[in-house]
Design a protein around this nucleic acid. Structure first.
Length: 102
DNA sequence: TTCCTGACGCTCG
DNA sequence: GCGAGCGCCAGGA
């Protein structure tokens, strides 16, 4: 478990991501299937409850789109938010529906 | 080092 | 209920 995370975080570092970014992505991959988390929650998990802005930037830089379920991160007001990966927001909603998150 | 932008959040009109 | 504005932090130029 820890070994796995360490390896992943190293890979992320090689991708040019910084500590905060890595923590965000690491927490994102922990999100269970069929469950959604808000940017605020993710920011809190990463140690910076008010850095929800930076969280969005981090997810955007996510180099492991399928491995890191960034589509499970939604906004606090219920809207799905944006999605830079393949398919865009449309695909994001579709995936969430498929997982039963909605 | 300073300024600008951004996959956001919350309040106000 | 909806739209606009201000505030938040991190990263890049």
């Amino acid at each position: 478990m820890s070994n796995m995370r360490s390896g992943m975080s190293r890979k992320l570092e090689e991708k040019g991501l910084t500590g905060f970014q890595i923590r965000v992505l690491l927490n994102t991959m922990k999100i269970p299937k069929g469950r959604t988390v808000t940017y605020k929650q993710l920011a809190s998990m990463s140690g910076r409850p008010k850095a929800y802005r930076a969280v969005g930037t981090a997810l955007k830089k996510n180099p492991f789109a399928p491995r890191i379920p960034c589509h499970r991160v939604v906004r606090s007001d219920g809207t799905p938010g944006n999605y830079s990966a393949r398919g865009g927001t449309r695909r994001k909603v579709k995936m969430l529906k498929s997982e039963g998150a909605i």
